[in-house]
């Protein structure tokens, strides 16, 4: 049981990393293709990156969730 929980948590971490890497690759591609005016797209993608890390890696929800 304990082990199963650990495994699923680790799997979740892997999926988050896949998403982050994919987003970074998209950012890179956007920079290659759009030679000007890509700032808004970058900001949007960075915010998604940040939310993923804040929520899944840094557990920001601990701040307002009830203490276990």
């Amino acid at each position: 049981m304990q082990n199963g929980r650990l495994r699923s948590a680790l799997a979740r971490g892997r999926w988050v990393l896949v998403a982050l890497v994919a987003l970074t690759v998209v950012e890179y591609a956007v920079a290659l293709v759009m030679k000007s005016g890509n700032l808004p797209w970058m900001i949007i993608m960075n915010l998604v990156d940040a939310v993923l890390i804040l929520y899944y890696f840094m557990h920001i929800a601990q701040l307002w969730r009830k203490e276990e």
Binding site: A31, S36, N38, L39, M42, M45, N46, D49, L54
Partner: peptide, 19 residues
Amino acid sequence: WHFVDVAWVFIYPTLYLVT
């Protein structure tokens, strides 16, 4: 450590990608 990563997530495009 994650925060340092988040900071880089914004710094990287600011220096390398934005045009």
